[in-house]
Design a binder for these strands. Sequence first.
DNA 1: CTGAAAGCGCTTACAG
DNA 2: CTGAAAGCGCTTACAG
Lengths: 342, 342
Amino acid sequence: MKSNVTMKDIAKELNVSIVTVSKALGGKEGVGEELKKKIVECADKMGYRLNSLARSMKEGYSYNVGVIVSEKFVGPPQAFYPLFYQYISQSLGEQGYSMIIQVLSLQDEENLVLPRAYSESKIDGLIVLGQISLPYAQLLQSCEIPIVLLDFYDERIDIDSVVSDNFCGSYEITSILIKSGHRDIAFIGDIYATSSIQDRFLGYYKALLESGIKLREEYIINDRDKEGRYIELAFPDKMPTAFVCNNDVVAYNLILKLREMGFNVPDDCSVVGFDNSVHSVISSPQITTMGVNLEEMGKTAGKFIVNKIRKENKRYGKVTIKENIYQRESVKSLVKINERLT
Amino acid sequence: MKSNVTMKDIAKELNVSIVTVSKALGGKEGVGEELKKKIVECADKMGYRLNSLARSMKEGYSYNVGVIVSEKFVGPPQAFYPLFYQYISQSLGEQGYSMIIQVLSLQDEENLVLPRAYSESKIDGLIVLGQISLPYAQLLQSCEIPIVLLDFYDERIDIDSVVSDNFCGSYEITSILIKSGHRDIAFIGDIYATSSIQDRFLGYYKALLESGIKLREEYIINDRDKEGRYIELAFPDKMPTAFVCNNDVVAYNLILKLREMGFNVPDDCSVVGFDNSVHSVISSPQITTMGVNLEEMGKTAGKFIVNKIRKENKRYGKVTIKENIYQRESVKSLVKINERLT
DNA sequence: CTGAAAGCGCTTACAG
DNA sequence: CTGAAAGCGCTTACAG
């Protein structure tokens, strides 16, 4: 048992009723200014802390939001999911909510055991971070609790989700190359491999189209075999002046390869990547890249879930968040300064 | 208002008292086996969820632990702090606790504003992840709530803490080199720079001492100037066969440098690092390194805080956790296989 | 084994 | 403006 100061203690101290204390501390109508001030001061002096549990009992809301992440994402230090937590937390905090994080064990996911925070009614809403098995997602959906999926989406379930926009991001970074005067731009990646690589390819294509640059087949350079292993790149006869790589690892290796071949980056060729992973920072030169906008995504998910809690029928659907550009050193502008001015 | 199933509903359904339902569901003494089973089944069927808030009200415990981290650690993708969360969460989960994470804003840290989770009585204990300003730590200490510091320690305050053991880790990895037959082992790092580098140097020294290897001054190679910028390494005339680097970045660059100089790693020289950072993985060859044992540290902090909540006077002091070795490819054994057998 | 009563700390109508 | 009463959902003694 904690020996905490309660409203009762303050009421006794000041010879007023508990109701009045509650109103004063809660900023509600119906207390004289002077008395209110006295109560607030007294509470402060006595080290009073609100017992939000008691309030929650009355209201039926815990003012907590749960974030669950599958155990399969726990571990590898390259993982970026944990970076979301802090942004979600900040967003929730601003809205008066706290964040409860729970790792969903592989067994619980498999056996469809609901997260404890939920079964103990500790949370008013749930953010699911990253992919989760379809049956589990369906289980969650059947619970009468607002849910937002973060960085994950499945057509077979109809839950609001916040995802990154690969297509847009690729379009943007390719456009930057074009604006920098590049017209011979290759795309490196297996455009049949995953839907996100496909989207990145299509964003690249859109940027070309928009600038009237023809898509050349030999400028679509495959980087992996059917098993997903990276392969030697087959460069076209006429070297492009810029490469859009489907991720930073590929960009990193490309830069090494180009150097071997006698091409310097960015002086001879420009290179851009995706993901803003450590490879982009560790590379020399550092790689200009598009990366998931963690902050924007986390804060959006935080806002959505709180809004959903407040208005139970609120729907958002699948919301895409633009990626962030990280301008570094691997792109050279072919446009002369005086040309730019004209 | 949620329209949740409560014990009252179950009681009505089964024509028993709420007390009996509470006992049955709580696994307490004093209910007939048969009735108990019936109640549990009924609760299941009706989709009953415990309202832990109500329980907490009675008991005075929230069964939540807060984790706060200063905003100054939020952002850089190299940060490893977020990786702690999942381990802490797992540890707390096993003990029946949930984890509430809160980022402490720079303003709140500066203005000594207590974390909301605390001032709203949402948590029974607090884990502080990473360094926090001394005044703030003192403020927290003055609160009547159990606290554990994680990866941070300050002599001026007397709060239980869980930190990584640089000294031991360095001793261990150096010993491994020695066991592999190396005797000419250099240490690379500015031994006056930080206390953790100092500890790593001393661990290295201890391993030498233990094996009767003399510490040679020219084998302590400084790697940075007074402003902390990395400098050219001054290699000794007689090249060592192994290098203990004070971190992975240094090890990474050393390997490149050695290659330039015509030394191959690990065939001509072995190299080990510290931190298990991405540099150790990205390097070619990958670097054998000692790294913070995130899992062990997180779980230890989780256990400590719960124990402290349960027994209010429990003290641990400063607890060091051994680092983990990550054996990779940058060490060559000089011991022949048949020698090993003898 | 079963259950009526009291209480955890607060808030929300509703009276005065 | 001030406050007595009821209630949020549960648990803990204590009777029967």
